[in-house]
């Protein structure tokens, strides 16, 4: 779509990684929030979308913006919810993709949404349903800075990512029979609140901005193979200390960081720290090794 689109070799590698990561998360005990966040990130990295956002619907028909790659995307999604119009809403309501390669021609269809999107520099929107058979549970929305259709190949990748996430979400629901999607959504939303609280804790303790705090949180959860929401909860409750998330030498007196913190925890486990403190999480395999892991 633009010059930041990766080369085809890089792209193929990343594509494989993205699916491996998604599949890996689905095999393990996982967070819906984490899956959805991953999905928006991968769409931006793989598809040259400028931003991605995700809405889920509960069974009373109300929609919530649950994940987004950037704050801008989140605001655009919220804007659609507030004004009750926009491509993402249409996509969820119809269960069909809504592909708008040039937003400037769509002002009549969405008189509130289009000017707002254009104002934020977004000129195309591709909304894909999260759908399994007859059930539409939400939409994945890809925002582009240039007008133009998304290449067919990219659309296929986006659909495959969305389908994988959908199957994952609905699968957990099938496994835990009584837990209907709405309940999952509520749990996911409450996890979001906990994660925001945890970001605040880390931001203060480590002088990080909120994105860096989130990366530190996520890096820790990954390296300990624990649920993001569980880690966030333990941090907010004081079971885990902020220092355990921050690189050695990083203290609250250090100046604000200018570079992003990716994985402050080394991949190996330190004794006495990690999943063995997480009473409710089942033990996990230590590596994601090359041998295929059968689904439970």
């Amino acid at each position: 779509m633009d010059s930041t689109t990766p080369s085809s070799a890089q792209r193929e590698t990343r594509l494989v990684q993205a699916f491996v990561e998604l599949a890996d998360t689905l095999v393990d005990d996982y967070d819906v929030v984490d899956i959805l966040y991953q999905l928006t990130q991968r769409c931006v990295q793989l598809l040259g979308a400028a931003a991605a956002g995700l809405m889920l619907s509960d069974q009373r028909g109300s929609l919530t913006a649950v994940a987004s790659s950037t704050e801008e995307a989140r605001l655009l999604e919220l804007f659609q919810l507030q004004t009750d119009e926009g491509p993402c809403l249409d996509c969820v309501r119809t269960g069909e993709p809504v592909l708008v390669s040039d937003l400037s021609t769509a002002a009549e269809r969405w008189p509130n949404f289009v000017p707002q999107a254009v104002l934020q520099g977004f000129l195309s929107v591709h909304a894909l349903p999260l759908r399994l058979r007859r059930e539409t549970i939400g939409a994945l929305n890809l925002f582009g800075r240039q007008p133009g259709p998304m290449p067919e190949q990219d659309l296929q990748v986006a659909r495959a990512l969305a389908d994988t996430a959908t199957i994952g979400i609905l699968h957990e629901r099938a496994v835990r029979r009584g837990e209907v999607l709405t309940e999952q959504l509520q749990t996911a939303l409450n996890s979001r609140i906990t994660i925001e609280q945890a970001k605040g804790v880390l931001a203060y303790a480590g002088h990080l901005d909120m994105d860096q705090a989130f990366q530190a949180l996520r890096g820790y959860a990954r390296s300990h193979r624990a649920r993001l929401s569980e880690i966030a909860y333990q941090l907010v409750k004081g079971v885990l200390r902020p220092e355990e998330f921050l690189s050695p030498g990083r203290t609250s007196s250090s100046p604000p960081e200018t570079v992003g913190v990716r994985h402050p925890e080394p991949p190996g486990r330190r004794p006495g720290v990690g999943h063995d403190r997480l009473g409710t999480s089942p033990p996990r395999r230590a590596t994601s090794g090359s041998a295929p892991t059968p689904a439970p």
Partner: peptide, 10 residues
């Protein structure tokens, strides 16, 4: 929620 977290840590 983020501000709540900041106050928890502070």
């Amino acid at each position: 929620h983020q501000a709540t977290g900041i106050l928890i840590a502070a």
